[in-house]
Computed example of a mutant assay.
Amino acid sequence: MSTSTLIGFLVGGLGFPTLLLGLLIYIRGGVVRLERRGLHAQGKVLRVQYPRTNKRTVYYTFRPPEGPEFQGNFQEWPPGPSERAPGSPVDVLYLEEAPHDHMAAGKGLSRRFFLIAATLLVLFASLCTHGVLQEYFAPQGQDLARTR
């Protein structure tokens, strides 16, 4: 294995999981910020979309006391027994200084999902790195024996 191939595999095996982990950290940080500092508003369901998959998309609107109306959506999967219908209430969290940052209460990236995904990404990166480095530093004689 050449050095450029080694670098390519390491960038793929470490870079991709690192980018995904960074994205997850950013999203989870926004959810935590809304859960800790967010104000509550009562919104209403505009419509519910039922695609062919086992999840549904709920579109909602809300108006903070100090500003214009905002719209958002969230996905529920699997759809629970309490069916949401247009006009039904939905609890919304938003930031006072930035009401465009909002989410339906309880619908953000959960701590449990974040920890499971982060653990799997770190495990994947570790296994990729271990495998690539083991292959790179293997004596040349072993490479020939493996192919036969």
Rank of each mutant, 00 (worst) to 15 (best):
F9Q: 05
V58C: 04
L20N: 01
F74D: 00
M103S: 10
M103C: 01
K44E: 11
R36N: 08
L10M: 03
R33M: 05
G87K: 07
F74H: 14
V32K: 11
H102S: 14
P17V: 05
E69V: 14
L6D: 01
P68I: 11
G29E: 08
A98H: 14
S4W: 03
Y26F: 14
G80V: 13
R84T: 07
V11E: 00
V58W: 06
A98I: 07
L93H: 11
P86Q: 10
A98P: 04
Y59G: 07
P51N: 09
T3S: 13
A104M: 09
P86C: 07
L93N: 01
F9R: 09
G72M: 09
E35T: 01
Q71N: 13
P86V: 06
S2K: 10
R52E: 12
G67H: 10
V32W: 06
L46N: 11
L14R: 01
V45Y: 07
N73Q: 15
P89H: 08
L14G: 00
V31D: 15
Q49T: 12
A41Y: 05
H40N: 08
T61C: 04
Y26S: 09
G29S: 12
P86S: 09
G38K: 03
R28A: 04
T53A: 13
T61P: 03
P65L: 12
R56N: 07
R63Y: 06
F9H: 11
P99R: 04
K55L: 13
L39K: 08
G30D: 04
P99D: 09
P65T: 11
F62Q: 06
A104D: 04
G67L: 13
R63D: 08
P78C: 09
Y60A: 02
V90I: 15
Y26Q: 03
R84S: 12
F62P: 04
R56W: 08
G29P: 02
L6W: 05
Y50N: 12
Q42D: 08
V31N: 07
P99F: 07
P17E: 03
G67F: 11
A105R: 15
P79V: 15
Y50Q: 06
T5N: 05
P99T: 08
G43T: 07
L24P: 00
G67T: 12
S82R: 15
Y59M: 10
T18Y: 12
Y59C: 10
P79C: 08
A98S: 15
V45L: 06
Y59T: 11
G30F: 00
Q42S: 14
I27C: 00
L39I: 04
P86I: 08
V11C: 02
L10F: 01
V45D: 03
P78H: 02
A105N: 03
T5Q: 10
P86F: 06
Y59Q: 09
G30H: 03
G38S: 03
R36D: 06
L39N: 00
V92M: 07
R52C: 03
N54C: 03
L23T: 08
S88T: 13
R84F: 14
R36A: 00
P65C: 08
Q75V: 15
L6F: 07
R37F: 01
G12W: 00
R52P: 00
L39C: 03
Y26D: 00
G12A: 13
S2R: 06
I27G: 00
G30L: 02
E69K: 13
G8Y: 06
G29R: 13
P89T: 05
P64L: 10
R28Y: 05
L20Y: 05
